[in-house]
Amino acid sequence: MCPDVEILSSYYDDELEDSQKQLVKTHVDSCPHCQKKMAELGLISASIHAEEEPDFQMAQMNTWNKIMDIVDQKEHKLPKVNFWQRRFQISFPAAAALVAAFVAVLSFSVITFYMGKHTTSSPSSPELNMTDASGAMMDDMFDDNAIKFDIPAINTIINAEEPLLIREVDFMNRDGKH
């Protein structure tokens, strides 16, 4: 009944013929087993994309400069074309993403400021030291760009169980209460 995982992999890449794609979609939409397979495919992609990428825009500009130097040298072109005179266009999605990121950062600062008015941080608990002996931050997730929540110190909060990520409906069913 369930299609081969190889077919699901092609389906995931949107590489099936329309007719087959429709058949697979109909099946997957009602098959938890295949949905789990799809989620695994998603997780594999997510994992390999999860690592941060360097700045390719800079790389693009720098490499262009180097290529032009070599090409012009070979052709004895003088003077060298001034890079800054070139209109170097950023691709549209990149430009849109940059703008979105910029305004997102501004929105966060606004959100953070707004949130800051409604929270109180407890001055009585000793401030948890986030740095190790060398002074370096232990984890890059504790950074200035994050959305910050300050909550009143509640000393008995720590159970440190395995973190749980679950759909609300599933949690209600398992717990029986809110």
Binding site: V5, E6, S9, S10, D13, E15, E40, L41, I44, S47, I48
Partner: peptide, 12 residues
Amino acid sequence: KIRIFRAREALG
């Protein structure tokens, strides 16, 4: 198609 599938199997 086959190679991508196999790569994902290995990672999965």
